[in-house]
Design a binder for these strands. Structure first.
Lengths: 333, 333
DNA sequence: TTGTAGGCGTTATCAT
DNA sequence: ATGATAACGCCTACAA
């Protein structure tokens, strides 16, 4: 059950492999007559070009890698869809990797991907992402960072205005009359989370308000856990701001479990919206980011980088949108 | 900026490439002294084995492909996570492809994946999936079909008991007192959908009930659209059963838009649960399938198939679970 | 324990 | 317009 090679096709068509190669890739002059014969042979034999051999020769695999913390998070799911669509449009395949925020996993994947000679990498850095970033750079692998960025490193990034988005949320809540806030955040060190905290806090700078910041994990359970700490603060904050979608959902679950009504007893807001296809009754006031577009643009940037020598690292910052819904209301008093 | 090859390492360590190969793959005897020298050279030079060359020689790429209709559907998102985890555990990478239920796209991907010489394929067939299945078979590519299956073809499948799951739902609704049902289904031809309809209908066979079946697309909008048709039926059905998660959500959105209260005015149920991390207040009565496990087991089956000559097509049918929640209640009357 | 020869399936380059 | 040659980087088989 040997695979059909270019030589088999050549023999069948009575030419050499080079001629077949020219036909397959339209990479050189071939007489009409010969071309037809070769095409017939290709169909007869069911020839499938071997991209391994091709890649070995051309140093190009038409394969990109997407490394995220967890596809299961709808934000990343949507990013992944954008990435796959844009890659597919350009004839590229996408390898998907989940790190679960582990820098060790991240490094392991980068190494595997380097071995696979992927053409480029789309990376959502796990935590600080320094080590992975340095490795990728040392290997000279083209890369575009998505969502978060890596501090103190030159890099191409496609991200959102986390700072401004959080600031707009802070203003919204302040305008509603809130003066005592609690930010439910993930681990420190992620630039998005840090930016969101900074944006929120600085927007309220100079005003007579109190802002607590709680740090925890990045999964819903952690949101639930932090929210029980938040409502135990004295005096109890009247408005909560969670720094990502999983934390927001976890916070809401936690409040439900505690029997605390949103927004009657407390206001809950967050970063990241949920896709309309997942929500029957949109309820949460959130800062939304264009996840799908982030994925698409990251790929476009990466591909441009691939065939531009001396490409300069580029930063693309997409705008966020404040979506006001039922979960935010004036404080009860 | 040439890449370091095995020969560079060999030269640096004062041995031949074969010896380096033996060290890298632990594939033959190497004296302690030489091994240390080679390892030092590998580190010095930052050698990264080229999997293209390796794959070309070994005819093995350690890469699997997952072809689904849309990762954005939480069912497939979860399957994808299971696939990636299991593949990663075995040192494999996963290529992700979205077909959007297009058989043309499906074929295009299968062809690209064959060119990449992936070791095997995990396929959720688009619609009937016949053409893709035949192509994969003709190419002799190992494959495991997930979720749906391809009619009249021998194949390895990991799927759920759609028939039994739907039957248990029918019984649940009948026991609540419902006698007039409407099934909100996707396009015909998908085995899951067809099985769910059959399971539901047959479970009520011989009983004095009425069951309407509506067919449409597979996205939420279609669920909304069908539900407006459903509630216009005379007499209006008292219980709805949607054949997948997107249709269920769409149906609920549609009912909300029409101002029809669930479950007070109508009972709404569906197939597929939503991950707990996405839902704050679980509400829908559903038949749940173990999506993550399906992904994992599919990979395990595929890997077993890879290194078992004459592997016999195997079918794994996982049980479903009826989860009764607030959206189902006795008919109003 | 280590090395030599050859080939995996392509394509760039140069020649005819 | 077509062909011969060599190389991409690695590993199997065999020899030393």
């Amino acid at each position: 059950m040997r695979r059909v090679t270019i030589k088999d096709v050549a023999a069948q068509a009575g030419v050499t492999d080079m001629t077949v190669s020219r036909v397959v890739n339209a990479s050189g002059p071939v007489s009409e007559k010969v071309r037809l014969r070769v095409e017939a042979a290709i169909n007869d034999l069911g020839y499938i070009p071997n991209q391994l051999a091709r890649g070995l020769r051309l140093k190009r695999t038409n394969t990109l890698a997407l490394v995220v913390s967890d596809v299961t998070n709808p934000f990343f799911t949507t990013v992944a869809r954008g990435v796959e669509d844009a890659a597919s449009d350009a004839g590229n395949l996408v390898l998907l990797c989940n790190t679960d925020e582990s820098e060790k996993e991240e490094l392991r994947y980068v190494e595997m991907l380097a071995q696979q000679r992927v053409d480029g990498m789309l990376l959502v850095p796990a935590r600080s992402g320094q080590a992975a970033h340095d490795l990728v750079n040392r290997l000279g692998m083209p890369m575009v960072v998505i969502d978060r960025h890596v501090r103190l490193r030159e890099q191409s990034v496609v991200r959102c205005d986390s700072y401004g988005g959080a600031a707009s949320m802070a203003k919204h809540l302040f305008d509603l009359g809130h003066r005592h806030f609690c930010i439910v955040a993930g681990p420190t060190g992620m630039t998005t989370s840090d930016d969101r905290i900074a944006g929120f806090v600085n927007a309220l700078d100079g005003l007579d308000v109190k802002v607590h910041v709680l740090h925890g994990g990045y999964l819903p359970e952690s949101g639930s856990e932090m929210v029980t700490r938040a409502v135990a603060l004295e005096p109890r904050p009247t408005a909560l701001f969670a720094s990502n979608n999983f934390l927001t959902i976890g916070a809401l679950q936690g409040l439900n479990a505690l029997g605390i009504k949103v927004p009657e007893e407390i206001t809950l807001t967050g970063f990241d919206d949920l896709p309309p296809s997942l929500v029957t009754a949109p309820f949460l006031t959130v800062v939304d980011q264009p996840a799908y577009q982030m994925g698409r643009q990251a790929v476009e940037l990466l591909l441009k980088q691939l065939d531009t020598p001396d490409f300069q690292p580029t930063e693309i910052v997409l705008p966020t949108e404040l979506i006001v819904r039922k979960s935010s209301a004036p404080p009860a008093d």
